[in-house]
Design a binder for these strands. Structure first.
Length: 400
RNA sequence: GGGCAGGUACCCAAGUGGCCAAAGGGGACUGACUGUAAAUCAGUUGGCAUACGCCUUCGGAGGUUCGAAUCCUCCCCUGCCCA
């Protein structure tokens, strides 16, 4: 990602939830020492979304000031699963899966963070040889009361949901990572506060200078809830330009300013102006959203791709024309087939019942013409565009 | 080891012999509206069938009954209390 170097003040204030302890961190920065910036991840769900991007951009900016990123691959904690979600124990991953996921994660991670200035460390480096004595040593440092101060633990316990000892161990392992790599600062979303502070405590107990904790706000997903895979409301690093742009357009209007603040480096003044214009109603939120879409797509795919994505969006949704790229599907030209079957065959419906329902609801069009007859037959003698809803198209071509 | 409360469709959650393919909410999908894939409103949401209807589903396996998500038996899983 290319951008002009934001100054330190911008880095420390824009899109920052909390820095603990801020004064301490500023002193470290001022010392001229090359700081070790820790970020850990669990290779359980490899796909990164722009919510993760918020913290990665911070890392990159500090990296550009000469500091060292230390990426901790949680190949052990990844097996436990961060209990931060309300779900109970996650399924354990095989070592192969962990490895593959980690690989994918890192490819995406380095789309923003500079690989040269990053030290990658695997937890297994220090946990492989961990003995029961080491576990006791670690476990003896924390009390149940401390762990129960963690909201997710407390909530699950009080609601009578299952909570394993292994899960309670999660923060301890993450904390020990900080000791192992001698972190100066740990980064994370606000949901990581507890875990990161545990690292700070543990370092003190083990005679290391305590790390500071740098927390960024969580970016809401496209539907306003917490961005995450479970809600299917993420905008992913690997989303192709069109999709990425479209997803940005689908965020609710209220989130616009939050998105500008957290995912772009537009000057604060400019964002304030937008905010004012929105309140006064002197600007169409859609236009700002389009600007946001361009900004975000540009970060991952470049300015040209962003422009193309925008053109495509206008074409389909404003002018209601066909997208420029449509998946083709060949259909036997000799036979008249039932439309319901075709819908299932090309994957626009998962069952005939669903296909029938779509037709009944007026959601199916052939060459732009709405089909209302559930028993409609199609013969593909030439190319026909089959459409479901506003944005799912398939080109039917004659074949054998 | 004992007692109690639970395990329902994608998720949460009602239902305690037939009116149950199973309330309600969330999500998803479709439609209307819209200078947005925003907001709002409406509809749909197990499968097969043009349709009458048929089939599969309520932790698992058996059983009672004309008929079970609902009753009985055993088993598995979760939480709480007692030891």
């Amino acid at each position: 990602m290319s951008q002009k170097r934001p100054d330190l003040e911008h880095i420390l204030t824009r899109g920052v939830a909390e820095i603990i302890v801020e004064e301490e961190f500023r002193e470290k920065l001022a010392s001229g020492r090359k700081l070790r910036l820790k970020l850990g991840f669990d290779p359980s769900r490899p796909d990164l979304h722009i919510g993760h991007g918020v913290v990665l951009r911070k890392l990159r900016q500090l990296q550009d000031l000469g500091h060292q990123v230390v990426l901790v691959v949680g190949d052990w904690t990844g097996q436990i699963g961060d209990p931060s979600g309300r779900d109970e124990t996650r399924t354990l991953l095989t070592p192969e899966e962990v490895k593959a996921n980690a690989q994918t994660y890192m490819e995406q991670f380095f789309m923003i963070v500079d690989q040269e200035g990053t030290e990658v460390r695997w937890q297994s480096e220090w946990y492989e040889g961990f003995t029961l004595a080491d576990v006791f040593n670690l476990a003896s440092r924390f009390t149940l009361g401390q762990l129960m101060a963690h909201e997710t633990f407390r909530k699950r316990y009080e609601e009578g949901l299952p909570l394993t000892i292994m899960e309670l161990m999660y923060p301890l392992l993450q904390a020990y990572d900080s000791v192992a790599i001698e972190a100066d600062v740990e980064f994370g979303g606000t949901d990581q506060k507890f875990n990161n502070l545990a690292g700070r405590e543990l370092q003190k107990m083990m005679g290391q200078p305590p790390q500071d904790v740098f927390l960024v706000p969580l970016l809401p997903g496209t539907d306003g809830r917490k961005m995450g895979k479970t809600f299917d409301n993420t905008i992913n690093f690997v989303d192709p330009p069109d999709k990425m742009y479209g997803k940005v357009m689908s965020i609710t209007d209220e989130m616009l300013i939050t998105y500008f603040t957290l995912t772009t480096d537009l000057p604060d003044g400019e964002i304030e102006e937008m905010s004012r214009a929105l309140e006064e109603g002197t600007v169409n939120p859609r236009d700002l959203k389009m600007r946001l879409g361009r900004e975000i797509v540009t970060q991952f795919h470049g300015a040209q791709a962003a422009q193309e994505a925008e053109r495509e969006f206008i074409r389909i949704f404003r002018e209601r024309e066909l997208p420029s790229k449509i998946v083709s599907h060949s259909i036997d030209a000799l036979l008249a087939k039932r439309l319901v079957d075709v819908l299932v065959d090309v994957g626009l419906a998962t069952s005939k019942s669903e296909a029938r329902r779509l037709i009944q609801q007026g959601g199916v069009r052939l060459d732009g013409e709405r089909i209302e007859d559930v028993n409609h037959m199609v013969t593909v003698e030439r190319e026909i565009i089959l459409q479901v809803g506003k944005r799912r198209f398939v080109r039917l071509v004659p074949g054998k």
